[in-house]
Design a protein around this nucleic acid. Structure first.
Lengths: 113, 113
DNA sequence: TTGACGTATGCCGATATTGGCATACATTAG
DNA sequence: CTAATGTATGCCAATATCGGCATACGTCAA
């Protein structure tokens, strides 16, 4: 047997720092591959391959426009990771213990738009 | 070049689901290896090897007692992961946008022990 | 049509992993 | 002392990765 494929899930996909970096660079924007090559310093094939992995696990979404590909981060795909870490986060950040209460409270307090 | 070693950092270490499971099983307790073997269903050598990886990245701490090894989770070692995901979490959970304000507010409100 | 541009793929070598089984090591029981 | 218990390691085979370089493909410009 071997290690799980990087395309197995979000956990494996983000194990590679280059891919986390790409997600960081994309951020909340919609970016083109060549733009990512410039901003990341990685080679073009490298960027395309990493994007392929991120695409495979749904961490990025693409919009095709002519010969360009506009990539953007698909946040919710990271939810499993956030959900998995949260319980442990409570152990080092006591204030997170109150998070649930706070969110509930906030939900009640805030005005719907 | 090859994939980063699993012992490179917490991100790589938790990419393997068996290791996440072990961390979940340990939870907030202090558990013995044989205890983990029973609760996880993994073979003893497998558990020991995975624990070795988790130890290498500081995700677990051990206390030696005779021929027993008591393992416990070292929460803070997961902080880099939590920190990395948080910004993205805000994109799918709008309420997290207010988290900082809330924490600050709570900090002011709560009484020191 | 021909060529330039933007992306994705293919092939390669080097490397590290995972589970299984056997086994070594240290500690405690008889 | 000898055996049993609790853990860690070693070796193996199968697999998948990552970067580099070349190259294929589709689209738009002259």
């Amino acid at each position: 047997m071997a290690r799980s494929p990087t395309t197995a899930d979000a956990f494996n996909a983000i194990a590679e720092s280059s891919r986390r970096e790409l997600l960081d660079v994309i951020g909340g924007d919609e970016v083109t591959v060549s733009e990512l090559v410039l901003r990341s310093g990685l080679s073009q094939p490298q960027v395309s391959k990493h994007l392929g992995v991120l695409r495979a696990v749904g961490l990025v979404l693409v919009r095709e426009e002519g010969r360009h590909r506009w990539y953007r981060v698909n946040g919710p795909a990271l939810k499993p990771i956030h959900d998995w870490v949260l319980p442990f986060a409570r152990t080092w950040n006591a204030r997170l213990d109150r998070l649930d209460d706070l969110l509930t409270e906030l939900k009640t307090t805030e005005k719907p738009q």
